[in-house]
């Protein structure tokens, strides 16, 4: 009989991966786009579970925080606010099928190539050698191990990724931001700095005559 921990983690693995696959299929087949996004969230969540089983706890949590907590919420926002007609959305299905199928096929072939030719750089696998970039397991938490590599070895790439994100953010804002002159905005600093003599005038009003 195998060790109990292994059996449990194997069961968890099959549970998570089945759910990832099933919800992945449901994302594309669900009739309602909001349901699609919700299934996408489920897929992300189970992928985080798979990361946990691998011992990559930091990645698992970041996946949940970033993808589930932020990205998918924005998807959900957009999908919910767009008034989508579900019937007309289905109409062009056959028309787009060959094109979509082709793109999917190319992606599949590329994925097979990538995973088939997957090798680790020699310095990663040679544990204990002085050039090892990844600390051997059990010496440090993987959060720290990731940080050690990210902020030293790959520092410039990391910074470049940050710059790409910044450019994308600025681009998105300039594309969507409309300055509307007719909107009245509250300027708190102006309100607070308004002196008393500009706003209040005290008059002695004679009785019976008014102002």
């Amino acid at each position: 009989m195998p060790e109990a921990g292994l059996v449990v983690s194997a069961a968890a693995f099959y549970l998570f991966s089945t759910l990832v696959l099933v919800s992945g299929v449901m994302v594309v087949t669900a009739r309602n786009p909001v349901h699609s996004v919700l299934f996408l969230v489920l897929a992300f969540f189970n992928a985080a579970g798979l990361f946990l089983l691998l011992g990559a706890e930091f990645l698992a949590m970041i996946l949940v925080v970033v993808y589930v907590g932020a990205v998918a919420v924005l998807f959900l926002f957009v999908v919910m606010m767009l008034n989508i007609n579900f019937v007309t959305m289905r109409e062009g299905f056959l028309q787009y099928l060959p094109m979509g199928g082709l793109v999917g096929l190319i992606l599949l072939v590329e994925l097979v190539f990538v995973t088939g030719g997957w090798t680790f750089a020699p310095e990663v696998t040679m544990a204990g050698s002085p050039s090892t970039i990844v600390a051997p397991l059990g010496v440090m938490t993987n959060t720290r191990a990731l940080g050690d590599v990210l902020y030293t070895q790959y520092f410039y790439l990391f910074q470049a990724a940050g710059l790409v994100l910044l450019v994308a953010m600025i681009g998105a804002i300039t594309l969507t931001h409309r300055s509307r002159p007719d909107v009245r905005r509250q300027k708190i600093s102006e309100q607070v700095s308004r002196p008393r003599k500009d706003s209040i005038e005290i008059r002695k009003v004679p009785t019976g005559r008014g102002v």
Partner: peptide, 23 residues
């Protein structure tokens, strides 16, 4: 090891209950 991240992740999920209820 990542306790505080777990808390952060769970609290960022809380928005789903509300958004699903509203929709």
């Amino acid at each position: 090891n990542v306790g505080i991240l777990y808390l952060f992740a769970i609290s960022s999920l809380g928005v789903y209950g509300i958004i699903m209820a509203g929709w």
